[in-house]
């Protein structure tokens, strides 16, 4: 570690490129926290959005018009409005309407923190897309395949579990992959409600150290790297699930 720090200190003295986060312990700790916050936001939102997606796709197969209508409305609204405004609407709009408690200094303590609101709105946003992705996957399973399963005596649930879902998941993996990458990138919006994720921390650091360009470059590479890891995992999964001769 000391070698890295020394090298970056040398880099600063020799070239003026000031990557404080690699040699200044305070900045380093801050950025590590920001990085972990981004990872935390991403991982929790991804998992929640998948749950929302599966639940939504299942509800869309409901016999109740009302249920289908509500899910449809949810998707339509979240698809066609800016995610940043969604976050503001939830955090400022709904958050202030919810009852709060008082903390030990008599300050208003909101029921949900900004991090929690960020996770909720990001999950809902990405979840809306996931519902559609899963549904299009389910629709892609040919009717004849479903009939064949039913003819073999599978129940509706059994058909769903053993035939429809495994096939549907494979069809929708590329689109899902894309949406999750998008979600990872969208976590930067939490910056706007002061969640200390990478962008927020970077801005604090360049505010005090006057190294905008360096922090920018670090951010760009950090996100490209994180996206790279996610894509790698998803591709591994896709490959593991590939069925010879099915699809392309």
């Amino acid at each position: 570690m000391a070698v890295v720090a020394d090298w970056f200190r040398w880099l600063y003295e020799a070239t003026g490129f000031n990557f404080t986060i690699f040699y200044d312990p305070y900045d380093a700790r801050q950025m590590l926290g920001g990085f972990l916050m981004t990872v935390q936001l991403s991982v929790i939102s991804i998992l929640l959005s998948l749950v929302i997606g599966i639940l939504g796709a299942w509800l869309q197969g409901s016999n109740l018009r009302l249920v289908r209508g509500l899910v449809g409305g949810f998707i339509t609204v979240f698809r066609n409005t800016p995610p940043l405004v969604q976050i503001f609407f939830f955090y400022f709009g709904i958050g202030t309407l919810l009852p709060g408690t008082e903390n030990q200094w008599g300050m208003r303590q909101p029921m949900l923190s900004n991090v929690q609101w960020a996770i909720i709105s990001l999950s809902l946003f990405a979840g809306a897309f996931n519902v559609e992705i899963f549904r299009s996957g389910i629709e892609a399973v040919p009717r004849t395949t479903v009939e064949a399963a039913e003819a073999l005596g599978y129940t509706r649930l059994g058909t769903y579990r053993h035939v429809v879902l495994p096939l549907a998941l494979r069809v929708c993996l590329p689109a899902l992959n894309n949406n999750l990458v998008n979600l990872l990138k969208t976590t930067t919006l939490a910056y706007a409600i002061a969640v200390p994720e990478m962008l927020y921390v970077a801005k604090q650091i360049w505010g005090s150290s006057q190294n905008v360009l360096e922090m920018m470059l670090f951010l760009l590479f950090a996100y490209v790297g994180l996206v790279g890891i996610l894509v790698f995992i998803m591709h591994r999964w896709e490959r593991a699930m590939r069925i010879p001769g099915y699809g392309r």
């Binding site: 449809g72 389910i138 040919p142 069809v171």
Partner: peptide, 22 residues
Amino acid sequence: LSPRVERLHPPFPVFRLRAWHG
């Protein structure tokens, strides 16, 4: 694009969204 699919009949009832819903 959403995955290209041969759509004969959707296996489950599909809710058609109209403009006014959203």
